[in-house]
Amino acid sequence: MAHPNVELIAALRETARRLKNGAPYAWGNHGTCNCGNLLQVITNLDKDEILHYAQTGVGEWTELAEDYCVVSNAPIALLITRLTEKGLTPTDIHNIEYLQDKEVLERLPGGFRWLKRNQRDDVVAYLDSFANLLEDKLLQQIEIPYQQLMQQERLTYC
């Protein structure tokens, strides 16, 4: 599962917002598919630049994510690296492309259901649910030192 962090959560939400508002979408195009749209947000590259870089590798985002090498200077490796730097794993990249992570699907509005990878509304629902899941996980990691705060408060009022 992805490493929850504010930047990744914001990128997922921004991608969903853009898709909801009519951003170009075509599942069969590396520049405008599920991961392509997310990369547009993360990298500030446009769909044509992403498509150009993606064509230096072979396969869909799933295969590209599994095959990339972090020491390679291949342009596709740069895109995959940008996704992993934001906290995604190759499995997350696969799941974003195919909308398959069951933990995310369980958090869909209305409950668990299978989504279609090439349906804009399904992608939006998945990305929003993924962002919500990561936000909840991030909030669970925050520890508030109540004892220390209470001691400081007592010292302030004494």
Rank of each mutant, 00 (worst) to 15 (best):
L115E: 06
N95M: 13
R117M: 10
D101P: 05
L105H: 00
V70H: 07
W114Q: 13
P90R: 00
E97Y: 15
T81W: 11
Q100F: 13
N73A: 14
D92A: 10
P75I: 15
V70P: 06
E106F: 07
W114C: 08
D101S: 12
I80Y: 02
D92G: 08
P75G: 09
C69D: 12
A74R: 14
R107C: 10
I76A: 04
S72P: 00
V70S: 07
N73R: 14
L108E: 00
E97F: 13
K102R: 11
A74I: 14
N118Y: 05
K116A: 12
W114N: 12
E103C: 05
K86W: 08
L99W: 01
S72H: 03
G110H: 04
T84A: 02
L99N: 04
L115H: 05
C69R: 14
N118F: 00
E106P: 01
G111N: 07
K102C: 09
L88M: 11
L78G: 15
E85S: 10
L108K: 01
L108V: 01
E103T: 10
E103A: 13
L83M: 14
T81L: 04
K102M: 11
L105E: 00
N118D: 12
R117I: 06
R82I: 12
A74S: 08
R82Q: 15
L99I: 01
N73K: 12
I96C: 13
L79Y: 07
Y68W: 15
K86L: 09
L99F: 01
Q100P: 02
R117E: 11
E106D: 11
V104K: 04
D92L: 10
L105I: 02
D101N: 15
Q100G: 15
R117L: 07
I93F: 03
P90K: 00
P90W: 00
V70M: 02
K102L: 09
L79M: 07
L108C: 03
D101M: 11
P75D: 00
E85R: 14
C69H: 10
D92E: 09
N73L: 13
A74V: 15
Q119R: 08
E103N: 10
R107D: 03
F112V: 00
K86S: 15
Y68P: 03
G111F: 06
A77S: 10
R117A: 12
T91E: 14
F112G: 02
T81S: 11
L83Y: 06
I96L: 15
N73G: 12
P90M: 03
A77R: 09
Q119S: 06
L78V: 12
L79V: 11
N73D: 14
P109G: 07
P90S: 02
T81V: 06
R107S: 01
G111W: 04
Y68S: 03
K116F: 10
T89D: 08
N95Q: 10
R82S: 13
H94F: 12
T89W: 08
H94Y: 14
K102F: 06
K116H: 08
W114H: 13
L79N: 05
L83S: 06
I93G: 07
N118A: 12
T84N: 01
K102A: 10
P109F: 02
Y98G: 07
A77Y: 07
V104G: 05
I80P: 01
F112T: 03
Y98N: 14
P109V: 15
V104I: 11
I76E: 05
I80T: 04
G111S: 05
K116N: 11
Q119L: 13
T89G: 03
P75V: 12
H94T: 14
T84R: 04
